[in-house]
Design a protein around this nucleic acid. Sequence first.
DNA 1: TCACCTGCTTGATAAATGTCAAGCCAGACC
DNA 2: GGTCTGGCTTGACATTTATCAAGCAGGTGA
Lengths: 228, 228
Amino acid sequence: MTSTRFESIRELPLFAEMTEESFDILTRGAYVQNFPPNMVMITEGEAADFLHIVQSGCVELFSSWTNRETSVTTLYANSTFILAATMKDRVNLMSARTLQKSRIIMIPSENVRDVFASDPAFALAIVDELARCYRATIRNMKNLKLRTSIERLANYILKQHHRQGDAVAYQLPIEKRRLASYLGMTPENLSRAFNNLKPHGVVVDGQTITITDMTKLTAFAKPDVLID
Amino acid sequence: MTSTRFESIRELPLFAEMTEESFDILTRGAYVQNFPPNMVMITEGEAADFLHIVQSGCVELFSSWTNRETSVTTLYANSTFILAATMKDRVNLMSARTLQKSRIIMIPSENVRDVFASDPAFALAIVDELARCYRATIRNMKNLKLRTSIERLANYILKQHHRQGDAVAYQLPIEKRRLASYLGMTPENLSRAFNNLKPHGVVVDGQTITITDMTKLTAFAKPDVLID
DNA sequence: TCACCTGCTTGATAAATGTCAAGCCAGACC
DNA sequence: GGTCTGGCTTGACATTTATCAAGCAGGTGA
């Protein structure tokens, strides 16, 4: 049984509904790999030979042009990446690096395309995941084009607050310099943006964010279900 | 035969490979509608009841937040839109307006989801289209985050040049104020950006763009297959 | 314990981009 | 032909954001 090694992902939405046979075919030739922190595992422009799934740890997708670099997103356990390039059999548009020691499952892209064609439940799950990622990217772009950097930060702080169980104080999940890049600004500018949010009810101490006045912060951030 | 009204889209990649029966089911309850120019046909936040296809004319997808608005993309004949929201049965994240008199085919979202589940060829076409749009959006975001507005304009000029058959001079396909919004800048700034490109081999006269020095322009724009 | 990283912050300054106001100009319409 | 309109352009200025340089601080390892 090849699949026993991959039981941990069997319950993920992407794989939960497919037949046992399909899952076997899918995981044939798949393998698990451990990466140390800060390791570039995928470089943009390379062929997408494997669908990747974060089993544990943390992966950043980023992209470069000339001498500039930008963080696109950060992925945690149970996230998939390289799905679109896998399905279209094209090169990756983004690079990927580990931020922590990470365990990654790699499934041959060919298997994914084969099973997509033969297992309707898997096809549905793939399209669902793809549409979800697409919509997340549209939201991201709206965020970038419609808001200033301070507004983006304010909304990020609110979103994290909800993700971390509505605690008044919480820890930033990533380094500030990566957050800055994700939000489309420089680290210096992020520092100043945090200061600018003080009168709007946010206090920062190291990695700890404390929302001192939710009403003020929400009034300033104006979160929107169609962006955030 | 319901489908005769929709023969014009039968040959599109999205519908070409599906069975005749599936196409019949898909177009049941579908209809064609004519819109005048500058008509908002879809408002973000509304349910995505129909998959839309531009049969003729021109449609702009755009988005708003507070009192700001941004152009996301412009679609011409044979383009589909609202595909991701249709597949996930969610609200639209973008609004759509006609830029010219346009003829739009509308297919009930329910039909799309039903046929997706029953016709593997259609499923494959859907996932292909979705992945294509997703990747286009990633490119768009990289363009926005990694380049200045002048660099974005330079690359836009190069891309249009190729699209319009490598002619030395060509007409801008959209109004400058919409181009400005698409590129993430103000109309005033676009005007100045055109002026800034003069020493890099671009002359503008109204809607006409003339590339006077391709070498210089390319050297400045540094187009990249992973963005453009 | 201390030195030394590395990432963060702050200040000074520059560059990019946006805003406001005015004028220009081509096309639409009477 | 003349007027009007809307989009485009230009100038002056404000704001936002980036850059450069320096200093700070918390964690790591000798």
